[in-house]
Amino acid sequence: MHYYRYIGSLTTPPCDENITWTIVREVKFVSKEQIELLRVAVHDDSDSNARSLQPLNNRLVQLNKLKGYQH
């Protein structure tokens, strides 16, 4: 499994937290029904992200490979 990791913040104000984001490289697919169930579970009633795309600002983004992972 390959994944990207970088330090950023949450997508809602104040947007100044130090959050470690881990993004899996391989795209997974879910149904609309699964998305709706997740939105209900986390009380997400918005239709968009809370902020626009942010500049990289010299953050390090690394691609990692999990050793020994078989899928």
Rank of each mutant, 00 (worst) to 15 (best):
M1G: 02
Y3Q: 03
Y6K: 01
I7V: 14
G8W: 01
S9I: 02
L10A: 03
L10E: 13
T11M: 06
T11H: 08
T11Q: 08
T11E: 07
P13H: 02
P14Y: 07
P14H: 11
P14I: 11
C15H: 11
C15W: 14
D16K: 10
I19K: 05
T20E: 15
T20G: 04
T20N: 06
W21K: 05
W21Q: 00
W21H: 09
W21E: 01
T22E: 06
I23C: 07
I23Q: 07
V24Y: 06
V24F: 09
R25Y: 13
R25S: 14
E26S: 13
V27I: 15
V27D: 12
F29Q: 10
F29E: 15
V30Q: 06
Q34P: 03
I35F: 03
I35H: 02
E36W: 04
L37G: 09
L37M: 15
V40A: 11
V40S: 02
A41S: 14
V42C: 00
D44P: 00
D44Q: 00
D45Y: 13
D45N: 15
D45R: 15
D45L: 07
S46E: 08
D47R: 05
D47Y: 02
S48Q: 08
N49I: 03
R51E: 13
S52N: 08
S52D: 15
S52E: 13
S52I: 04
L53S: 11
L56K: 15
N57I: 03
R59Y: 04
V61T: 12
Q62D: 07
Q62P: 00
L63C: 15
L63H: 08
L63I: 14
N64G: 02
K65P: 00
L66K: 13
L66P: 00
Q70M: 05
Q70R: 11
H71K: 11
